[in-house]
């Protein structure tokens, strides 16, 4: 079980078309040995959560540069709750002011990676977070 590959959804919610970051992260996670499902643009929160559940994902990475982060994080986490799938880790990045980060963390996001974050930081964080989660599930 713990040797299973980490499965992660990289998602672009809403109308934002800036996908450079999402694609770079998707490739970095893949190069780090994870199975990455990239959703493409214009995903509704419902589509993202459905994909995560269908794919039995460990995590959802959300990239938003349009300023709509509050809306999308809260909606996605709400939907996970409705589906009793809160074990799926939610993290994200984009153009998100520092002042907004505490609110996103408080609603259940695991981490917010701002501009300038290295892909290694994300990869390492996600690995340890998934490891932690799987250990808990085993116990």
């Amino acid at each position: 079980m713990t040797h299973e590959k980490i499965r992660v959804i990289v998602a672009k919610p809403g109308l934002d078309g800036h996908d450079r970051g999402a694609k770079v992260i998707a490739r970095a996670l893949r190069d780090a040995g994870m199975e990455v499902i990239y959703t493409g643009l214009r995903q509704t929160p419902e589509q993202i959560v459905d994909t995560a559940i269908q794919e039995d994902a460990d995590a959802i990475g959300i990239s938003i540069l349009s300023g709509a982060h509050h809306f999308y994080f809260s909606r996605i986490i709400e939907l996970l709750k409705e589906h009793e799938a809160l074990d799926i880790i939610v993290f994200g990045g984009g153009v998100i002011p520092d002042d907004d980060v505490p609110a996103l963390l408080a609603m259940g996001a695991g981490a917010i990676f701002g501009p300038g974050t290295t892909t290694t930081t994300c990869v390492d964080w996600l690995k340890s977070k998934v490891h932690e989660k799987r250990t808990l599930e085993m116990a």
Partner: peptide, 10 residues
Amino acid sequence: PMAQGECGKV
């Protein structure tokens, strides 16, 4: 519905 959260943002 797709406009939710995006109005006036960018």
